[in-house]
Design a protein around this nucleic acid. Structure first.
Lengths: 235, 235
DNA sequence: AACATTCTGAATGTCAACAAGAGTCGAGGA
DNA sequence: TCCTCGACTCTTGTTGACATTCAGAATGTT
């Protein structure tokens, strides 16, 4: 009963709930479902060929991730992030990520650094295909690896509870947040990787603060005084 | 259809799910259910005279609160917090609460301050009946009010996701964490209230750091040998 | 015409039964 | 004696049907 050197997870048995959640999540991100839209349980159940039980549990999961809201006897709706929501996400993410990078600077293993490096490399090679969506996902994956490198389970949970919202905010803004910044974003992540490798805690904090405020500035620029819904409508 | 000055919530319709979750939560806190125990769905369902549907959803809710774990086809178990879990809770709570008090120092309304004050007063009057459990609940309620005063929805959610664990850790240690510290705890919360009222952000951060590290030190003392190595590692 | 009321359709909340996985216990053999 | 294998049982995962609630249309009244 030996455990080979490979530390892959044991192919987690996932029920239909996770399956449904993943499908709906993707449908929200790639725009198949409009923001603010009502999510009909029987509709989703029929479309995915499952019963309503797993669908309900999946919606609860998405509610915990903050990308849908649920009201008693009224159902689930996809959230529309307001400018205030946006500020909340930015500020909370900042304190979480500052803490994460400080922990990572101390506790990151070589494997963690390798993971981070792998994501950065994927970014560089993704330059070619010009897919904004992939780029955004890689961006978030880098930060996933950062949180993982901090080896702090509850910090990871806290990140998980806003991760989907962050991703949604990035995706829903991608139309106006065009690719002028792509090489800049890559450079910033490379810098983060380097500064983590250096184990310099204070430099890490400075770097992540700079990176997040840059990201935040780029994104709030797209609000220009308007509501998100109108923003996406005019594109 | 006028809205009187009273800002009560519209009597939120709660389904059986929340009802079950509340029951199980209380059962965990007051010791009716032992730590590490398996939670049988049909057992809970029969005992509460409901079907398994709401029970399942309630268990998912408790899992999100971090006081039960769930495994595929194996069911739900009440968590047993280890010394590591404890450190995670302490560190994450610290950064959240530092942020919360800084926000509160700026954004707290008079009503928020009144709420905080009310809790402190309840603490003082609770001195008499010598109920540790009530005291702990008031302690957590004070911090609830603090997070509420920060007017940051997602920060509140982050607190919610560790709140039950914090409460559980306090409750499960109360036997050894006797009431030597009660007036000290009250004094600390009074100081927090005062410093928030003063709107001095830096003083607030200093106060909350002191309060949390005090609480943490008092609690880790109760581990007494459960994890000697890690115990000596810190401070 | 404007408002209040009732009714109807549809969605969610809940339930009890069926299907499938995981643990257990004992028989059999090395 | 110890290990392996397989059937059995208990629990969870899933399903389809029933009950409850909400929103809007239709109707009656002022």
């Amino acid at each position: 009963m030996r455990e080979g050197g490979l530390d892959i997870q044991p192919a987690r048995r996932r029920g239909l709930t996770d399956e449904v959640a993943e499908n709906v999540r993707q449908a929200i991100f790639d725009g198949s479902l409009q923001l603010g839209e009502r999510l009909n349980e029987v509709d989703i159940a029929e479309r995915l060929q499952v019963s309503r039980g797993p669908v309900r549990e999946a919606l609860v999961q998405l509610k915990q991730e903050g990308i849908v809201t649920m009201e008693w006897h009224r159902g689930a709706f996809i959230v529309q992030l307001s400018a205030d929501d946006f500020r909340e996400l930015a500020s909370l993410r900042t304190i979480l990520e500052v803490f994460a990078i400080r922990q990572a600077a101390v506790a990151a293993t070589q494997a963690d650094l390798d993971d981070l490096c792998a994501v950065v490399k994927s970014m560089s090679s993704a330059m070619a295909d010009q897919s904004d969506f992939d780029m955004i996902q890689l961006d978030v994956q880098f930060h996933d690896a950062l949180y993982r490198a901090s080896h702090h389970g509850r910090l990871w949970n806290a990140w998980s509870s806003i991760r989907s919202q962050v991703l949604l905010s990035l995706v829903s803004r991608r139309a106006v947040n065009n690719n002028y910044y792509r090489d800049l974003v890559i450079a910033e992540h490379e810098e983060l990787l380097q500064v983590i490798s250096s184990r310099d805690v204070e430099a890490c904090e400075k770097a992540i603060r700079g990176h997040l405020s840059d990201t935040y500035d780029r994104l709030v620029g797209t609000f220009d005084g308007a509501d998100p819904a109108q923003e996406s409508a005019k594109r």
